[in-house]
């Protein structure tokens, strides 16, 4: 992990209200592994003091790209950054996705910014598989051309049916698993809303597959010091069978059997 003053190279709005920001970060970019994130120091608003975590979407030589949605004060202010601006990055952080097992068929499941968190895995997996991507409407479905360019098959589900299957991304996955999986064993990699991750994990446990889930928790330090970002995980050595893991350090990626889901998600 390194602290680096990165320079904004390009910053453009994308579909679905998302933005793509490309940063020159020669110390961090070449070291990012799939599923890792960077902790970005906001330059505005001035009274927002904490950094914000973002998955690294793509890397290319000394540059890295983030794909983000303005959802609050910090991310809205981020959209004002112009090429040439300098922002402080801390990264790469966290334990990302493992290398896909060679004897499994890789399956990616994404919602929201999940496509950004999964792209590097798709690029570096060594073999193309299938990607399931969901969104509320057609405009919310991101990165399809990027995955197709890597040779991955992409299946889309939208809640309003404006693109691909009408329904949840897990519906698209279920349909595929029922009719096209045949005798292959999939290995699942997922990033998206908690409900989606939980649904993916339940399927994996029921069928005996492995599923790697990238969890999203509000963060403070991003390096394991503040104990803000905790997630309940199984721990047989503890009398109650669970403990808190730090999503920024032990995560953000967990195998689905590690996660203890709580009723509110």
């Amino acid at each position: 992990m390194t602290l680096e003053e990165a320079i904004v190279v390009e910053h453009l709005p994308d579909a679905g209200g998302y933005w793509r920001i490309e940063l020159r970060a020669p110390a961090i970019a070449p070291r990012v592994r799939p599923g890792q994130f960077v902790h970005v120091r906001l330059t505005a608003p001035a009274d927002a003091i904490l950094r914000r975590p973002f998955s690294v979407f793509r890397t290319e030589d000394d540059r890295l790209e983030l794909l983000y949605k303005p959802v609050g004060r910090g991310t809205r202010a981020m959209t004002e950054l112009r090429p040439g601006a300098v922002i402080s990055l801390l990264g790469p952080l966290g334990r990302g996705f493992p290398t896909p097992a060679p004897d499994r068929f890789p399956v990616l499941v994404a919602g929201g910014y999940g496509m950004a968190a999964l792209y590097l895995l798709g690029r570096e997996s060594g073999r193309a598989g299938i990607v399931f991507v969901g969104g509320a409407s057609a405009v919310d479905v991101l990165c399809v051309p990027e995955f197709e360019a890597l040779g991955w098959e992409v299946r889309v589900a939208t809640e309003d049916g404006s693109r691909g299957l009408r329904g949840q991304v897990t519906d698209a996955f279920d349909a595929w698993a029922a009719s096209e999986l045949s005798d292959r064993t999939p290995e699942l990699f997922a990033c998206g809303p908690n409900g989606m991750l939980r649904a993916v994990g339940e399927r994996a446990i029921a069928r005996g597959w492995t599923a790697w889930l990238s969890m999203d928790r509000a963060m403070g330090c991003g390096v394991g010091a503040c104990l803000t970002c905790v997630q309940k995980v199984r721990d047989p050595s503890h009398p109650d069978g669970w403990t808190w893991a730090r999503v920024c350090r032990e995560g953000p990626v967990f195998e689905c059997r590690e996660i203890v889901w709580e009723d509110d998600v």
Binding site: D47, I49, L50, C226, L227, T228, C229, V230
Partner: peptide, 13 residues
Amino acid sequence: PPRTVETPSGLIN
């Protein structure tokens, strides 16, 4: 959790 929340120029933990 949530264990912290950012407030103007501050953090409540």
